[in-house]
Design a protein around this nucleic acid. Structure first.
Lengths: 161, 161
DNA sequence: TCCTCATTGAAAATGAATGTCAATTTCTTT
DNA sequence: AAAGAAATTGACATTCATTTTCAATGAGGA
């Protein structure tokens, strides 16, 4: 059973447990989502789906992504642009991000020592931490070279708001 | 000169440098912003200002907050609700956040070792990091006790999207 | 199969944030 | 101090992502 299949199964279980139904649309959206990689928006997913099934509305894509979040199978992220991007859970790959504010590139990374930071903060303040988001904003290698590290207002690239 | 005054001065310099003008509205908005503490939304700031000056429009609050960001004096954050909250810069107080997904409480913390994480990621990937955002989502002390760490759908509290 | 209730898509609604524009204000230049 | 060019303002309209509404359809247990 592929990685993706396992998650699709978990989603089916979530639906059953919640008294919800399995439909052609949900099935296709969920498959497309797990096949899509990372940082997809609802709109992007919707467009990909149009090639295989014209009868899937953008609204249903939004609804299904919301269910995926409730099932704990997806996380939404906002990187400084106006829309939400979605990532599959669980974090089988690094989940922290470097965002270039000049060209908009998003690079993933992971640092094990972050868990120490997380635990320490949680313990000292009595929190139970279930999830974290770390974003580093700045310039990627190319943009550091091109711009000498100085900001360029492009209007396109994500901003750290 | 108070902390706040120094920033107000820096904003005035920014305006002059950019060929922009000082106005009663901008002045009041900026003062109110630095007096407001943290995590204020444009709307909240607007409401506070109504008590002292009815002639300040919400639109101008938005515009001035945008200028403050461009001046490097404010940062916008999205904690899983639909609007943007603003924090003053520079980070003279901790800038990382624990967000309770049950009651919506936001608690600040700081961990010096995060800088090591930041530098390490930046160095290994060639990034020049200028800013970071770290958010830990989970349950605060009270909610951990009350809910036994289990999620409660309140519809009000921030969600990790 | 029947029957109930969830689901769907289209259109309308929402809500935060931004653009438009005529009237006003700032600030530099006489 | 007065004038004039240019920026600023607020009310209104607009945009854009996302959500709600609603009538028609579909799923799936009895």
């Amino acid at each position: 059973m592929s990685d993706s299949d396992a998650r699709i199964q978990r989603f089916a279980e979530f639906l059953a447990r919640s008294g919800l139904k399995t439909t052609r649309q949900r099935d296709r959206i969920v498959r497309a989502f797990f096949a899509a990689g990372r940082h997809v928006s609802a709109e992007e997913l919707y467009h990909r789906l149009q090639t295989e099934d014209r009868g899937i509305g953008l609204v249903t894509v939004y609804r299904t992504l919301k269910l995926l979040r409730e099932a704990g199978l997806a996380t939404g992220r906002q990187f400084g642009d106006t829309y939400t991007r979605f990532d599959p859970n669980p974090a089988d790959r690094p989940h922290d991000h470097l965002i270039c504010t000049r060209c908009g590139k998003i690079q993933e990374f992971e640092d094990a020592s972050l868990h120490a930071v997380r635990e320490k903060a949680a313990r000292s303040l009595g929190f139970t931490v279930t999830e974290h988001k770390l974003e580093l904003y700045g310039f990627c290698r190319e943009c550091t070279r091109l711009a000498g590290g100085r900001p360029v207002r492009s209007g396109k690239a994500a901003r750290p708001v």
